[in-house]
């Protein structure tokens, strides 16, 4: 080929096609999606927790998209039903994730609703799940000799609590747990109107 204009013209057309199919059409198709019935907007504490989830890169090990029962046993594992687009109405940015080094978290709030468990698990996952490879997050907690008024003390299983000190959750940890508890899409939804399969 001799003409750079033909080259660049052709290259731009193919990219435009790809952009149309993967970005523009989904944009048009999904822009009128309504929030699922039963889905509540995040509170400001939950949004702060969501920010912690993003900042600490939880998304690189946890998905938020259980697969349909016809495809995988996600439902049987208690991870929940297959979600629909409306379940993510308030999610910006999306946190669907691509890795399951850890389990799916779309319904962790329903599965593990205890604040104490979640806080302790963030402080030391192996105290609750032997063999877990989740990082511990000591920087979200403070070690104090004595809890002060208003401190949220973390109750750890015997053997994991530091001797003579108490573990106090920092606001980051409390926010993150707020968000995790909000992850609950167990309300029923109508199946998508057209399922091509």
């Amino acid at each position: 080929m001799e003409s750079e204009y033909k080259l660049l013209g052709g290259a731009m057309v193919t990219l435009a096609l790809a952009t149309a199919t993967l970005v523009v059409v989904p944009y048009l198709q999904l822009s009128d999606v309504q929030p699922s019935e039963g889905l509540k907007p995040y509170t400001s504490a939950q949004l702060r927790g969501r920010q912690q989830y993003i900042e600490n890169g939880c998304v690189y090990c946890h998905t938020q998209q259980p697969r349909a029962q016809s495809q995988a046993p996600d439902f049987k594992r208690g991870w929940g039903r297959a979600p629909v687009a409306g379940d993510y109405y308030y999610d910006n940015p999306h946190l669907l994730g691509t890795m399951r080094t850890g389990p799916d978290l779309l319904n962790i709030g329903a599965r593990q609703p205890s604040v104490d468990w979640n806080l302790g698990h963030l402080y030391q996952p192996r105290a609750y799940t032997p063999g877990s490879i989740m990082p511990s997050y000591p920087y979200m907690f403070e070690l104090k000799d004595k809890a002060e008024k208003g401190d949220k003390v973390v109750h750890l299983p015997p053997g994991y609590a530091p001797v003579g000190q108490v573990v106090v959750a920092r606001p980051e940890a409390l926010d993150l747990v707020e968000y995790l508890l909000a992850l609950d899409r167990t309300y029923p939804v109508k199946p998508p109107p057209e399922d091509p399969r």
Binding site: L22, V23, P26, Y27, L30, S31, V33, A85, Y88, Y89, Y90, D91, N92, P93, H94, L96
Partner: peptide, 10 residues
């Protein structure tokens, strides 16, 4: 970008 659409763009 918003919600699930952001995922396809992503």
């Amino acid at each position: 970008h918003f919600g699930v659409e952001a995922a396809t763009m992503n």
